[in-house]
Amino acid sequence: MQKFDKLEGVAAPLRVLNVDTDMIIPKQYLKTLKRTGLAKGLFSEMRYQDDGSDNPDFVLNKPAYKNAKIIVAEDNFGCGSSREHAPWALMDYGIRCVISTQFGDIFYNNCFKNGLLPIKVSPQDLEKLFDDADRGSNATLSIDLEKQEIRGPDGGVVKFDIDPARKHIMLNGLDDIAQTQLKKDKIANFEAKSQTARPWA
């Protein structure tokens, strides 16, 4: 899993409440188990018009936000079903961080398993960050996970909380498999003792 330490980039303001995982990546894109190639389906029902052309009113289609690395989102982002393709699609597009006041629980957990940082902030801080994001490519946000800070283009700082264990796995790029491998010596010792105690097994 890709480590997350610091990130600086343009933040796209997504002023839509209750963006569920079907809106993030619609069901027709779920046939693959690959984590690549999903960027084209990200927010497809909002990004594209009926004829397949870009919807000029959607934030990620605006020139200032085409290379956004961060999304500032309204409440309850990632609610709905448990599809892990949602963080995969965001990552494949180039999004490494989503900031909101609240996330769907399953989506929130899936983000940490895939190297996408979800940051919870207060409604007041979210409005400040929306103001920054509204400036487009003329302003960037800087995120420092170690310090747990979001720094705006004018030097303003928003602090955020994160579970220490989740912070550790993000800083070190540890997915579930990598976390298990860290304990391989203990696992080997257990297996050896088990074999001695139960040689017939």
Rank of each mutant, 00 (worst) to 15 (best):
M1G: 07
K3A: 06
D5P: 09
D5Q: 15
K6I: 13
L7F: 13
E8N: 14
R15G: 07
D20C: 02
T21G: 07
Y29G: 06
Y29T: 06
L30I: 07
L33F: 10
T36G: 13
G37Y: 09
L42I: 07
F43W: 05
E45K: 15
M46V: 11
Q49W: 11
D51N: 08
G52L: 08
S53N: 11
D57I: 07
F58D: 04
V59L: 04
V59T: 06
L60Q: 02
K62C: 06
A64H: 13
K66G: 03
A68P: 03
K69L: 10
I70G: 01
I71P: 01
D75M: 15
E84T: 01
H85K: 05
A86M: 03
W88L: 07
L90Y: 01
R96T: 05
V98D: 03
I99G: 05
T101L: 05
T101I: 09
F103N: 02
F103L: 06
I106V: 11
F107Y: 05
N109T: 09
N109M: 08
C111M: 03
C111R: 00
C111F: 00
N114F: 00
N114A: 05
L117A: 06
P118K: 03
K120D: 11
Q124G: 11
D125R: 05
L126Q: 02
R135V: 07
G136E: 02
T140A: 09
S142H: 14
S142E: 11
L145I: 08
E146H: 15
Q148F: 10
E149C: 12
G152N: 11
D154L: 13
D154S: 13
D154P: 14
G155V: 09
G156C: 13
G156V: 14
F160Q: 04
I162D: 01
I162V: 08
I162M: 12
K167W: 06
M170S: 05
G173S: 07
D176Q: 12
Q179P: 10
T180W: 05
Q181V: 13
L182V: 10
L182G: 11
K184S: 11
D185R: 12
I187T: 08
I187K: 08
A188F: 14
N189D: 12
S194P: 09
R198T: 13
W200Y: 10
A201P: 10
